[in-house]
Simulated scan of single mutants.
Amino acid sequence: MKNTAYKIFKKPFFGRFARPWRWPETVDQSQWQRLSVESESGATIAALLGPAHTQQAKGAVLMSHPMGVVAKGFWMKYGHAELLREAGYHVMIFDLNGFGESTSTTMDYPLDVLAAGQTLQAQYPELPIAVMGASMGAAMSVCAMAQPKHPFKAAVLESAFPTLLHFWRRYPIPKLGIQLSKIFYPAGERSLRPTYAAEHLVGSPDMLLIYGEADEFTPIEDGKLLWQALKKRTQAEFWQVPDAKHTHAYAVQPNEYAERVIDFLDAKLIDNNRRELNQGN
């Protein structure tokens, strides 16, 4: 009954994305290992693990997708996953519940990110873990970092909205649903509000925020609201990308994107990990 109610509530938000998932055509499926993750949201999360292309890995990165039928395939289709693998990072991509191949349960998406991150950490317990998210996946990753026992040392977040209302304000039915949830289930709405999560971060994961100047869904001013909230609790960088549309900074500035993202991960994961090991000794 509970899941049925959530499916009805979720339909105006995500119903158009409920389609059978397909591998992107250019992907070599043999390079990916399938994993199944049990989330505290009640969902069974479908994930794929892609090892680094280098002999020795620097770390591992969980990739949390934006809304869309392609779901976890976003990271393969547009090249982000291969960028990280070539740079020496293991990557894990996964479907949030109700998307792709994952089962649909509640709207507790941060718990899906948390479960996937903990599974990735269990796969590589000796390596530092980061999370990379786009749009919805980025926002829910921020919320996951307010959860106890999250494994993330750093985060790369593109087009993350500061609150649900900021993203859905131009859509009357979802907007009404969010407004009602703030009245009848305020704890649930807070758990999905990145600016609230920013005030309750667990640990101090360093963050790189990326926003496109041509983004109609999460404009620069929305990104700066979240950035200001995060800066009060951790080190957060802000990159404003000319001509980039929603979640597509890599397509517009591939060289600078690669340099900024890889340099950030190398500095925050490798260098910080070395310092922690030295302090432990």
Rank of each mutant, 00 (worst) to 15 (best):
residue 2 K to E: 09
residue 3 N to C: 02
residue 7 K to R: 15
residue 8 I to P: 01
residue 10 K to A: 12
residue 10 K to T: 04
residue 11 K to I: 00
residue 12 P to L: 07
residue 12 P to I: 13
residue 12 P to M: 08
residue 15 G to I: 12
residue 15 G to K: 10
residue 16 R to S: 13
residue 20 P to S: 04
residue 23 W to S: 00
residue 24 P to S: 14
residue 24 P to F: 05
residue 26 T to E: 13
residue 28 D to T: 09
residue 30 S to C: 02
residue 33 Q to M: 11
residue 33 Q to R: 14
residue 34 R to E: 14
residue 35 L to M: 12
residue 36 S to R: 12
residue 38 E to I: 13
residue 40 E to C: 07
residue 42 G to A: 06
residue 45 I to V: 13
residue 48 L to H: 12
residue 49 L to Q: 03
residue 50 G to K: 07
residue 52 A to E: 08
residue 57 A to Y: 08
residue 58 K to P: 09
residue 59 G to S: 04
residue 62 L to S: 03
residue 62 L to E: 04
residue 63 M to E: 05
residue 69 V to L: 01
residue 69 V to I: 15
residue 72 K to G: 05
residue 72 K to R: 15
residue 72 K to E: 11
residue 74 F to S: 02
residue 77 K to T: 15
residue 79 G to Q: 03
residue 80 H to V: 12
residue 82 E to H: 04
residue 82 E to I: 01
residue 83 L to V: 08
residue 86 E to C: 02
residue 87 A to T: 08
residue 96 L to A: 08
residue 96 L to V: 03
residue 96 L to Q: 14
residue 99 F to K: 00
residue 100 G to N: 05
residue 101 E to W: 00
residue 105 T to N: 06
residue 106 T to H: 11
residue 108 D to R: 15
residue 110 P to Q: 09
residue 113 V to H: 08
residue 116 A to G: 04
residue 117 G to L: 04
residue 122 A to N: 11
residue 123 Q to R: 14
residue 123 Q to M: 10
residue 124 Y to G: 00
residue 126 E to K: 13
residue 126 E to Y: 05
residue 129 I to C: 04
residue 129 I to N: 00
residue 131 V to S: 00
residue 133 G to S: 11
residue 133 G to E: 05
residue 133 G to Y: 07
residue 137 G to Q: 06
residue 140 M to K: 07
residue 140 M to D: 00
residue 141 S to T: 13
residue 141 S to N: 10
residue 142 V to D: 01
residue 144 A to V: 01
residue 144 A to M: 01
residue 149 K to H: 15
residue 150 H to E: 07
residue 150 H to D: 00
residue 151 P to E: 04
residue 155 A to V: 06
residue 155 A to I: 06
residue 156 V to G: 03
residue 156 V to R: 00
residue 159 S to W: 06
residue 161 F to V: 06
residue 161 F to Q: 01
residue 165 L to P: 01
residue 165 L to V: 05
residue 165 L to Y: 12
residue 167 F to G: 00
residue 171 Y to I: 09
residue 172 P to D: 05
residue 173 I to F: 06
residue 174 P to W: 09
residue 175 K to P: 00
residue 175 K to R: 14
residue 175 K to M: 09
residue 176 L to A: 13
residue 176 L to W: 15
residue 177 G to H: 08
residue 183 I to E: 03
residue 185 Y to D: 09
residue 186 P to Q: 06
residue 190 R to L: 14
residue 192 L to K: 04
residue 193 R to D: 11
residue 195 T to N: 09
residue 195 T to A: 02
residue 196 Y to T: 13
residue 197 A to C: 08
residue 199 E to D: 15
residue 200 H to V: 07
residue 203 G to P: 13
residue 205 P to S: 02
residue 209 L to M: 15
residue 213 E to S: 10
residue 215 D to K: 03
residue 216 E to D: 12
residue 223 G to E: 01
residue 223 G to Q: 00
residue 227 W to A: 12
residue 227 W to R: 03
residue 232 K to E: 14
residue 233 R to P: 07
residue 234 T to L: 06
residue 236 A to K: 05
residue 236 A to W: 11
residue 236 A to E: 09
residue 240 Q to I: 12
residue 240 Q to N: 09
residue 246 H to A: 03
residue 248 H to C: 06
residue 249 A to S: 14
residue 251 A to Q: 15
residue 252 V to E: 10
residue 254 P to F: 10
residue 264 F to E: 04
residue 264 F to H: 01
residue 266 D to Y: 03
residue 267 A to F: 03
residue 271 D to V: 13
residue 272 N to E: 12
residue 275 R to L: 14
residue 277 L to M: 11
residue 279 Q to Y: 14
residue 280 G to E: 14
